[in-house]
């Protein structure tokens, strides 16, 4: 991998220094992490959807901080969009395309829990098992 650092000076690499107070960014990131944890601590008092939204918003904010300043994207040319925009679209698109099939269950795919007894016959106990876990299902908001 020696050639990776080999061809550095070959062309004018714009090394003008952009002053960033990295420590300030770091402090902001730490505060964000604290907010995430606080969300978890006070999760009883917040509506659940607000909690999820808040936590993910904080994560996105942190990601943007890291990318903009630590990864210097703020100071890069337009190529950053050419590389990152299609990637982001593909990444989000993949998840969206998977959702109708995997997450929403057009066809039911709940295989019944089967009690297998001595290889002789199978007996369904799906009813009991499912009623036991019904509270879990409701936590999800149902499907």
């Amino acid at each position: 991998m020696s050639e990776i650092s080999h061809d550095t000076g070959s062309h004018a690499h714009d090394d003008t220094h952009h002053y960033v107070n990295y420590f300030l960014i770091f402090i902001a990131l730490c505060i964000c992490t604290g907010i995430s944890v606080l969300f978890d601590v006070f999760k009883g008092g917040i509506p659940k959807s607000a909690l999820v939204f808040g936590v993910m918003a904080v994560a996105v904010a942190k990601a943007l901080f890291v990318m903009t300043y630590f990864m210097h994207l703020k100071f890069e040319g337009a190529w950053k969009f050419i590389i990152l925009a299609p990637t982001a679209i593909l990444a989000v698109g993949l998840m969206i395309a998977l959702a109708p099939d995997m997450a929403m269950h057009y066809y039911t795919n709940d295989a019944p829990q089967v009690k297998w007894v001595g290889g002789e016959h199978a007996e369904e106990v799906a009813e009991t098992e499912h009623s036991e876990h019904s509270e879990h299902q409701h936590e999800h908001g149902g499907h």
Partner: peptide, 11 residues
């Protein structure tokens, strides 16, 4: 994400 939403429950 999709398996989480696709699963009837989650611990």
């Amino acid at each position: 994400i999709v398996l989480y939403f696709g699963s009837p429950g989650w611990p």
